[in-house]
Design a protein around this nucleic acid. Sequence first.
DNA 1: CGAAACACTGCAAAGGTTTGCAGAATGTAT
DNA 2: ATACATTCTGCAAACCTTTGCAGTGTTTCG
Lengths: 349, 349
Amino acid sequence: MVVTIRDVARATGVSISTVSRALANPDQVAEATRLHVQETARTMGYRPNRAARGLVTGRTGSIGLVVPDLENPFFGSICKGVQARARAAGYAVFIADTDEDPLLEDEVVRGLAKQVDGVILCSPRGSDEAVSRAAEESALILVNRALPGVPSITFDNGGGARAVMRHFMALGHRRIAYAAGPITSWSNQERDLALREFAEQSNDIELIELGNFSPVFSGGTQAADLALASGATAIVAYNDLIAAGLVDRLRHRGITVPADISVTGFDNVPMSTLVWPNLTTVDLPRIQMGRASVDALLDRVLGRSTGPRPNLEIPVELVVRQSTGVVPAIPASSTQSAATPSSKRSRLV
Amino acid sequence: MVVTIRDVARATGVSISTVSRALANPDQVAEATRLHVQETARTMGYRPNRAARGLVTGRTGSIGLVVPDLENPFFGSICKGVQARARAAGYAVFIADTDEDPLLEDEVVRGLAKQVDGVILCSPRGSDEAVSRAAEESALILVNRALPGVPSITFDNGGGARAVMRHFMALGHRRIAYAAGPITSWSNQERDLALREFAEQSNDIELIELGNFSPVFSGGTQAADLALASGATAIVAYNDLIAAGLVDRLRHRGITVPADISVTGFDNVPMSTLVWPNLTTVDLPRIQMGRASVDALLDRVLGRSTGPRPNLEIPVELVVRQSTGVVPAIPASSTQSAATPSSKRSRLV
DNA sequence: CGAAACACTGCAAAGGTTTGCAGAATGTAT
DNA sequence: ATACATTCTGCAAACCTTTGCAGTGTTTCG
């Protein structure tokens, strides 16, 4: 039925050790033998049994990837990068979706840890303690979250936030709102912190922190009214979905983006070019992140790591589209009247 | 370092056979022994080595999932369903992304087949022959494509297409365009065929077939001008992305959806509620599809299949939102003048 | 009370591969 | 020709678990 190394050995007339070596360590066997074995193995369709190999080598040739939600395209992209790089390195990828559940996450990571060479844990929802414990029990790379003592790869959230702030400043905005994401989200904390520090340092900027909001469309609709009431002329949304909800709700309130209020997202999900106006946002190179995390993990697993690698930060880029513009002469919220469309006013500017 | 069945046996004072049975076949060992073993195994953190188990049982306890593009949320949803159901059944999931490449797909499926108990092959891009061959070499379930002799699960594309047609007929539309997807896409063929048959049977409907277009936003922008020139009052897009591109381009041409032209998508991706107007579309229950495919695969793998199961068709549902409306009195394209916004005309109706 | 049935446990083989070690064969230097 | 180094190949153990079979001790029934 299935062809084993024994079959190849018999067909070639050599021992199974020689077959094994001819395929795995080609330089240890004479050229004639090697070619003969390789040719026979190929024609017979021989594939080494990974279980058997794993039993003796102690390595499985596979890695685990744990994400909170596969339906979220953000993680889909990371998966793609991970999968591609892992295959290139001869590794297979186990995937696990934790459904945003910290307990399930812990269970899944522990379960996976025993049957793979290493785990990439992406945007974990669990507590610092849980994650640290998991990191001790297995070769683990943290993605999109940093934790002292655990090797990790993150996006430069702070850099992205500062780029947005500089962009707004250049457009003349001084009163800027942040529509925050989930309070448990590490990247939300990073972005929030960077915005606050930026505002403090350039002391004519006023930062209004709103939220926290759910990182979905309806979170944005909810945030819109608060932002409008706050008198901000520009809004930084935690992510693109909140930004999309913001512009939608603002439109219903008769406010025009970007004429009356500017809005930026974060993430640059594919959707951000579909909403109208196209979102100015911060692009996070997710596929690259996936690739980098595999590299980091394999460095660790294969012991080829060059010294301690506490954290690697991947640069991000502001993508300016149509949802941001110069500050209006008369802020949309100056009347506090939501019923009056203000687009006319701003057209007069 | 890592705790094996031997360690548990030594700690409990029984043989390894008993430990194995106490954990896998609890009814074959005396209650006192069983409890003792189970307790010890738990406290020691023992997890059976899957490679070793696989070596003797011949089963790996994992399945493979092959998709064309993980970044596409359509497949993300299916992954989620597959992953959840597989874990519930005690199986782990290997994931592979083929990057829409038929050759890579073939290679990946063959590579995966040897190290898993079965493969779920999702929307394969390969030829009928390649897929059939792969199906012979391994336990395989085809998803989103049907092929004689290969067990498969598909969405009821025909039913969805007919539901759209009935919807348009009820709104008074008689001249309907289809913005077709990739010619190689099986589901495009299904949808196209069903539309054509429907139009033939109800002989006052005129179906205009346009395309093929790439199943992305820009494919829709391209389709919009052709559709407008065709004089159609309603457009069925192959998928939601094309539909989104359609409404965007139509807006730029001064055409209002749905007042001047009605548009439907297909798939009901999350994005379809973000575009304006919200898309009327056909919902494909993707997570359910993922679950069903695992069930079908395990039925086959575990030999508990109830007779031959050639193809299972999952029902779909038309979701009516805002991109479809009654046929305008004067079609938008009647003047062939794209410069003149026609929304005023249609408001007069 | 004896025999048979039963419940439980242990022994040992098997599964496919890698790899340390030793042996065989060939080549090289003395 | 002998000793030695070198290159290549094969033997056999080891990895960890499951499972058929046999053995032991206990219960049940006639």
